[in-house]
């Protein structure tokens, strides 16, 4: 299969994931004097223990099978996972309400199976696909990533998914494809936030990536979290995860993936362009006009230990992604 390289990226610029993982293992070995070396390759993902009263989301049978076959992810050294109750109970998903607790309270009836995804635009294999068919050729793996919200809080989350790049290669974008545009479901019947009268946002929610960002091995299409399927409040059944960008780039409940020549009109960028750039890379040196981005509250935080830590450039993934933006003024292209 021949893929025309998008204009902005040379193949040599992409670090193969194996290399990046080896590098991480090397660092780990050095840090732990060899003792912390991962115990061999391709550990199967085990189910996480959940605190009492926490609801699991197994998802449909076909997905559960794939999830159980997923490869376990590597933990972030010294950065423990956020508890499941926070990951599934503290969500910005304005389609289900503005408060962080709203999505969990109001999304439980959200129908996420069957689910169709439209692939369109500058692409050879355009069409409307059942999610099950779209996922069939892809093996799932766990990725433990930091998620940094533009509001100043962050969590470490064990996603399950597959690289967006693998899907892109399969659907064969044309040479005109310079961006990828994602759209969330628009269904006011199911999504009360889309019926809201006092919202500043236009629906449906749209996000986008430059082609080289979309092809980056860290960029994930997620279908699960914490060993099970994505709960509706986390963007079931299919969401994007771009760990070096602010959380709002990681669009939820995707129904359309389009390949475009023009930069997609991303929702927050359109709503408040001086506050939310198209790129939205995590950057402690460029503040949101109304608040600082220099630090973050790593959740869980409590009254007695607010857990305020310094925010890292590209959310700690600079080594892997900074080259995508070499030569760009990140103050201008925030």
């Amino acid at each position: 299969m021949l893929i025309k390289a998008p204009s902005d990226i040379r193949p040599s610029e992409i670090t193969p994931e194996s290399v990046y993982r080896q590098r991480r293992q090397l660092i780990k070995a050095m840090v732990g004097g060899g003792l912390l070396m991962a115990a061999g390759p391709a550990l199967a993902l085990e189910r996480y223990e959940l605190a009492e009263g926490q609801r699991r989301y197994p998802g449909p049978d076909w997905l559960q099978q794939k999830l159980r076959a997923a490869r376990a992810g590597e933990p972030l050294e010294g950065e423990p996972l956020a508890p499941y109750r926070l990951i599934t109970g503290h969500n910005n998903f304005y389609e289900f309400g503005l408060d962080k607790q709203d999505p969990k309270a109001r999304a439980q009836g959200f129908v996420t199976d069957p689910w169709r995804v439209e692939i369109g635009g500058e692409v050879a294999n355009a069409g409307s696909y059942h999610l099950e068919d779209l996922l069939k050729p892809h093996a799932l793996e766990e990725r433990i990533y930091r998620l940094r919200c533009v509001e100043g809080w962050s969590m470490v989350i064990p996603w399950i998914g597959f690289p967006l790049a693998d899907l892109i290669k399969r659907v064969e974008p044309t040479g005109n494809a310079r961006f990828v545009e994602f759209t969330t479901l628009h269904d006011p019947e199911q999504m009360p936030g889309q019926r809201g009268f006092f919202s500043t946002l236009q629906w449906p929610y749209v996000e986008g990536l430059r082609m080289d960002e979309a092809m980056h091995p860290l960029t994930l299409l997620a279908v699960g979290v914490y060993g099970d399927a994505l709960p509706p409040q986390n963007g079931a059944p299919l969401r994007l995860v771009v760990p070096w960008k602010y959380g709002f780039k990681s669009i939820k409940s995707i129904v359309s993936i389009r390949f475009t020549e023009q930069m997609p009109k991303a929702t927050w960028n359109q709503t408040a362009p001086h506050e939310y750039g198209f790129y939205a890379n995590v950057n402690p040196a460029v503040d949101h006009p109304r608040w600082s981005q220099a630090t973050e509250r790593r959740l869980p935080s409590s009254l007695f230990s607010p857990n305020i830590i310094d925010t890292l450039p590209f959310n700690g993934y600079a080594e892997q992604v900074a080259h995508l933006y070499s030569g760009m003024d990140l103050r201008k292209w925030y």
Binding site: K100, L299, P300
Partner: peptide, 15 residues
């Protein structure tokens, strides 16, 4: 609510 840990995931913001 603080003692019951019932201030949500981001108690700083809630308070």
């Amino acid at each position: 609510a603080g003692f019951r840990q019932a201030l949500g995931a981001d108690p700083a913001q809630t308070i």
